[in-house]
Design a protein around this nucleic acid. Structure first.
Length: 425
RNA sequence: GGAGACAUGGCAGAGUGGUAAUGCAACGGACUCGAAAUCCGUCGAACCCGUGUUGAGCGGGCGCGCAGGUUCAAAUCCUGUUGUCUCCUCCA
């Protein structure tokens, strides 16, 4: 949610920033028109309410003195009706404002690349050696199926397309990876959490998924209010919804592993094979609540925390700064980490680290008291550290051998219990 | 899933149609070399509107879990809803 005061006072600036995300200037004009109407109605209705309060007191006194007040009461009936009408205008205006404002994305931070889509993204750095194969590297789904550790067919039979079973060493590898990631993040100061996997509407609203992206989520239950989480960012960031975080707790660092459920509406036909795009996948998430003045330092640190995992796994990757058109709804600035996938000769997204500034905090009412004792919105950050399924894919592809086996990265061997993945019995 | 009780300020806790008690805490002041104690005073979250400013201040609205309704007037009456607790039921 944008700061309405900023929209009102710095209208041109807001229009300019949002234009880089495809928001028409007329949308902001509409928003302001409703706000103006709202404030005019408020001024009128509040005048009448002040009058009513004053007269009510006189009526009370008259009644106490057993005097007749019926004339004044009759007069106030009209006032009451008028107040109701004006309050309705206020409510309508607020509804209209909310309908617009709740769909407006965050303003991108100044200085990030401007462009309509991923073509405008900028590579920040490239890390790790891309391995030269002396055989043709296979895609991870082939490796996984031939080893018998990934079963897409039965996933489709039992649940549907974009679901799978991990089998034996596959399941064990998945568990080894997220245990390793959680341990690393704990060392970096993140508190490990285990969250609800279903959340209510307010939580989805607080982090910015709702109302604009309701089609991407899975609704469950009869009241339609519960939603399967599309990322642990939702329960982790809503942990402090409608609260004032005590000063001594800040900054708050959380990490959690959870399944992520996504409809993938609109991506039909894309990444239909393998672990890249599923309706359910595991992800280790990091979330931070910080004071505004530190949030961009914290963004760099969180990115480093995600990179650390890839470095320890010896997977080559690059870091890109997302353009205004490619960023998520709530983000003011986002770094994506993309891991090298040898079978396709491309980098694929494996982590996304964002600073939403006060955008989510304003929606979810997450505050702290500054040095003057005034309430301020915190800044919230979130980042994957990392997507577990895609990490499995990257390991299978980057660490495959000509004989079809896969070497397990050294740091995972204590978790996995072996140095090599072999054909599942 | 069934029955009942409860929901008021940072905390505790009165108030069943007519300006939201009181205590503790907090803040300011007095006393004191200083502090504690004591005394005096202030303070009812957040939010919104107007005026204005470094977002000082002033005036008003709103404000008793949330959303509606009745009324000149609602913490109070009515309806719905959410959460918590207790008992039963059920289960891991």
């Amino acid at each position: 949610m944008l700061d309405m005061k900023l929209v009102r006072t710095q209208t041109e600036y807001v229009k300019e920033r949002l234009a880089t995300r495809g928001v028409a200037a007329t949308t902001i004009d509409d928003l302001i028109a409703h706000d103006t109407k709202r404030r005019e109605a408020i001024q009128e209705t509040e005048k009448l309410k002040a009058l009513r309060n004053e007269v009510s007191e006189r009526i009370a006194v008259a009644k106490r003195n057993k005097e007749d007040a019926s004339a004044v009461i009759a007069e106030m009936q009209t006032v009451g009706t008028k107040i109701k009408e004006l309050d309705a205008v206020v409510a309508e205006s607020e509804e209209a404002m909310h309908a617009i404002a709740s769909h407006l994305p965050n303003m991108p931070k100044e200085g990030i690349p401007v462009g309509p889509d991923e073509a405008a993204n900028i590579e920040i750095r490239k890390v790790g050696q891309i391995r030269q194969f002396d055989f043709t590297p296979k895609p991870h789904w082939e490796i996984g199926e031939q080893l018998g550790i990934l079963d897409f067919e039965r996933g489709a039979k039992v649940a549907g397309a974009r679901f799978l079973y991990y089998v034996g060493q596959g399941a064990r590898l998945e568990r080894a990876i997220y245990n390793f990631m959680l341990d690393e993040h704990q060392k970096e100061g993140y508190k490990e959490m285990l969250t609800p996997y279903m959340v209510n509407y307010d939580s989805m609203y607080g982090t910015g998924q709702y109302p604009k992206f309701e089609d991407d989520a899975y609704r469950v239950g009869t009241n339609e209010d519960m939603t399967l989480i599309p990322t642990a960012e939702v329960p982790l960031t809503n942990y402090y919804r409608d609260e004032v975080i005590p000063d001594e707790k800040l900054p708050v660092y959380f990490t959690a592993v959870s399944p992520s459920f996504r409809q993938e509406a609109g991506s039909a036909g894309r990444d239909t094979r393998g672990l890249i795009r599923l309706h359910q996948f595991n992800k280790v998430e990091m979330v931070k609540y910080v004071k505004p003045e530190t949030s961009y330092d914290e963004l760099e640190k969180m990115t480093t925390n995600a990179e650390n995992i890839l470095q320890k796994l010896a997977l080559p990757y690059h870091v890109i700064n997302l353009s205004t058109g490619d960023m998520g709804f709530s983000a003011a600035k986002t770094y994506d980490l993309e891991v090298w996938m040898p079978s396709q000769d491309v980098y694929r997204e494996i982590s996304s680290v964002s600073n939403t500034e006060a955008f989510q905090a304003r929606r979810a009412h997450i505050q702290y008291r500054d040095a003057d004792g005034k309430l301020q919105f915190v800044h919230t950050l979130n980042g994957s550290g990392l997507a577990v399924g895609r990490t499995v894919a990257a390991i299978l592809e980057n660490c495959q051998n000509a004989d079809g086996t896969v070497d397990v990265p050294a740091v995972l061997q204590p978790y996995f219990g072996a140095a090599k993945i072999t054909k599942e019995a």
